[in-house]
Design a protein around this nucleic acid. Structure first.
Lengths: 214, 214
DNA sequence: GCAAGCACTTTTGTATACACAACTGGCCGA
DNA sequence: TCGGCCAGTTGTGTATACAAAAGTGCTTGC
């Protein structure tokens, strides 16, 4: 793996997982020492992180981890809503019904994935990720998929910020199942509406504290 | 001005204005010689351009100017529609009516800006840009504004691809005026609908050849 | 005692040298 | 004659040295 890739991956993970909290100063020499590479690949990694919005240039000099607080999560969800509703509509038009019926079925049973044995909810989030991927693929729009991809980085960061709540997670799974079903049926309006409802519920639980965002 | 900034600005302009057509190889040594800076700032500029989607890494080695063709303009406009409709809705809720009434007035008179004396339509595009900025400001959503900003780079590139058409430009100005009016009235649904109509007309004229995209 | 200026330190910006990988050309063998 | 291999060349990836700029703290003068 290239040194710049390694630096980027490591830093990105550290920021997303809140090991580097917002405001942390990202000094090139210190990072190059810590990561065991020279400043050049570190600079490249910082440039990529800045472009993604995970870091931002400090006034005048230096780079810091960008802030993300519940104050601005509503803005993030507004963008998310715009993108995901449109993606759901497009997917409903172009979908392969079998794919989404299968996802609908799996999501209907997703409650049993949320157990105490898997505190990170890996299985659940994997399934939710599969729905996202299926929607992106069915929508068939490169630019939209790209915009969603860069958005999801920030969403993961928010998710880590909140405690997850098994009851809310089970509700969310049902909402996801509704979305998959509407897409399977080719009903764009319902798919969009179901997405709106899901995101509104997610945001509300998130802001009330302790709920999982998706 | 910093050398990396200069390299970035120059290359970005060259790509947007089609002086560097899609597929052009961006070789670091050649660029550093041409721009009169060393490879380091050139690399930084290429990284930024790649992050924006104006350039993309070639298979294995090197960087090339990314392609954009009419084949994919419909996808670009789908994303644009999702973002701008939402922005218009948000702006309609939070707007200062006076700002948008003034824009409505100016856009109503924009026909006279489209003269043979200004073949680049600088005054017209400046006014259209002011509407965009006013909507972004009124929407008050950092993430949405950021997504729109990165989208507009590609739109400018498409615009340069097409000949502009004075008649279509005058129509577009009227459509913009409609959008401004709906926002001034605080009517989110109409603002969104007017945006949809405008973008649909723009895209159709663009694909029919010879029309201006905004 | 406070403020202003200067020097020092720290950090980023730029240049360049070196390492390595991939493509290209020619040459040799089958 | 064609195909494969090897060497040379070219270009990117990384490291590091040097330059410049900005912040900080001290000193000095008022």
């Amino acid at each position: 793996m290239r040194a710049s890739e390694k630096a980027y991956t490591t830093l990105r993970g550290d920021i997303v997982d809140w090991r580097l909290p917002p405001g942390t100063v990202l000094a090139e020499v210190e990072l190059s020492a810590r990561l065991g590479v020279s400043r050049t690949p570190v600079r490249e990694a910082l440039a990529r992180l800045t472009a993604e919005g995970l870091a931002e240039p400090q006034s005048g000099r230096g780079t810091v981890v960008s802030g993300i607080s519940l104050d601005h999560v509503d803005e993030l969800f507004e963008l998310r809503s715009a993108l995901e509703c449109r993606a759901a509509e497009l997917a409903a038009r172009n979908r392969d019904p079998a794919v989404f019926l299968e996802l609908h079925r799996q999501l209907g049973n997703a409650g049993r994935l949320i157990t105490e044995q898997d505190p990170a909810r890996r299985d659940y989030y994997r399934l939710a990720g599969e729905l996202d991927t299926a929607i992106d693929d069915a929508a068939g729009n490169h630019y939209l998929a790209q915009a969603l991809k860069s958005l999801r980085v920030h969403l993961v960061r928010v998710r880590r910020l909140s405690k997850d709540n098994p009851a809310r997670l089970r509700e969310a799974a049902r909402e996801h199942a509704d979305i998959a079903f509407a897409i399977a049926n080719g009903n764009a309006a319902v798919a969009s509406a179901a997405t709106t409802v899901h995101l509104d519920n997610s945001l509300r639980h998130l802001l009330q504290g302790g709920a999982a965002p998706s």
